[in-house]
C-alpha cells in the first residue's frame, strides 16, 4: 500500500494498492473520524482482496 505507485513498480512489488497521500497514506485528516476510518477500511479491504487475487505480474488494484 503506497502513494507513489511508480516507486512500488520500480522495486518489483506485484500487488499494489494506491493510497491517499505520503504523510497519511491510510487516512485523511480533513474527514470526520468516522469517515476517515471508513476510508481506511475500504483501502485495507482492497489490500485483502489483492492478496486473495491471482496475479501473473505487477498489478495495481485501483478498485
Amino acid at each position: 500500500m503506497c502513494t507513489i505507485v511508480p516507486i512500488s513498480l520500480s522495486i518489483g512489488a506485484n500487488r499494489i494498492v494506491p493510497t491517499v497521500s505520503i504523510p497519511h497514506p491510510l487516512g485523511n485528516p480533513e474527514l470526520s473520524p468516522e469517515a476517515e476510518k471508513a476510508l481506511r477500511r475500504e483501502l485495507v479491504e482492497r489490500a485483502l482482496k489483492a492478496l486473495s487475487t491471482p496475479v501473473d505480474g505487477q498489478t495495481v488494484f485501483n478498485k
Binding site: H24, P25, L26, G27, E36, R40, R41, L43, V44
Partner: peptide, 9 residues
C-alpha cells in the same frame, strides 16, 4: 493508524 492500520485490521 493513518500509516499502520491496526484499528481496521
Amino acid at each position: 493508524d493513518r500509516v499502520l492500520p491496526v484499528d481496521v485490521l
